[in-house]
Amino acid sequence: MVRGARTIALAAGILFLFVYPRFAGAFPVLLLTEIVIFALFALSFNLLFGYTGLLSFGHAAFFGLGGYAMALLVQHYQLSMIPALAVSMLVAGLGAAIIGFFCIRRDEIYFAMLTLGFGMMVFTLVHQWRSLTGGSDGITGFEVPLLDLVVKKFSLFSPWAFYYFALVVCLLFTLFLWRITHSPFGLILRSMRENAERVSFIGIDIKFYRWIAFTLAGLVAGVAGGLFAMYDRMASPTMVHWTMSAKPVLMAILGGTRVFLGPALGALIFYLLEHFITQYTQSWMIFLGAILVPIVIFFPQGVLGTLISWGRRLKGREDHGG
C-alpha cells in the first residue's frame, strides 16, 4: 500500500512538474527551475552522504567547476548547450577525481574538513585567477546557447524553454543516480556507510569505491552547476564558497538522507520557505533557522523519511487490524 501510494505521489509530482509551468507566469517558472537544479545538486551530494556515509563540506567545488566551465565554454567557444554541458560535467568530474583522490584517505569529521579545505582552495583559485574567471565579479554577459538537436535548433532564452530543458536534464541525471544507488555498486556503498571496516573484510578496496562515488557525485554536481550558471546568466565565486556547500547538506538532511528523493524534497522545502518568508521579511535566515531546528529535533529521518516511516507504521497497524 505504501508502495502504491509512493508510485501515485511520484507520478503526480512528475505530472505537476511538466504541466503546471505551461500555465504559470515567469516568476514561478524561474523559481521552479532553481528548485529543480538544486534538487539535482542535493541528490548528487547525497550519493556521498546518505549512501556512502561521507559528509562532504566542499561539494560546491564541483557545482562551481561545472558552472565556470559552462560559462567559459559558452563565452569563448560558442559551444551549443549539450556539448557545453557535457564538457562541464567532465571538467567537474575530473576535478572531483583529483580532489577525491586526496579526500577519500580520511573519513568522518576529517573527511568533512578535507573537503572543506579543498573546496575553499577551488574558491580562492576562481577568486584570484582574475584573467580567466573575472575574480569576484565572476563571468557574465554571455548568451544562453542554443539547444542543438541536429534536426532542429531551439532557443532556450525564455524561462519556460530553459525550465523544460533543465527539468529533462535533471530528471535524466536523477534516474542515473537512482540506477547507481540500486545497483550492486550502490549496495556496496550503503554497506560502507554502515560499516566501512567490515566491507574491507569482504574483499572490497573501500578507498577505491569511495573515490568512484566521489567522482560520480562531482560529475552530477557539475551538471547542476552548469545548468545553474546558464539559469543565472553568471558564474560567480559564491557558487564555490563553503556556504554554497552547506546548501545541499541542509537540503538533504531536511528532506531525509536515507530516502532516495529526500534531498530533492528538501530542496523544494528550502526554496518554498525562502520564497514565502522573504515576502514578509528581509531576514529569512532567522526563520529558516527557526524552522530547521525543530525539523532536526522532531524529524530525525528528515521530512520525507519520517513521512514514509509513518506510512509504514500505519500500514503495519492496518495489517494487524485486518
Binding site: 547538506v249 533557522g289 530547521l292 532536526v296 529535533i297 530525525p300
Partner: peptide, 24 residues
C-alpha cells in the same frame, strides 16, 4: 534531545543556530 543521534544532526542544529544568530 539530539545526543545519541547521528553527528550530522548536531552539526545541522548548530548550523540552524548560526542562521538564527546571524540574522538576529
Amino acid at each position: 534531545p539530539l545526543y545519541g543521534r547521528d553527528v550530522s544532526f548536531q552539526l545541522l542544529l548548530t548550523f540552524g543556530v548560526l542562521l538564527i544568530l546571524d540574522d538576529a
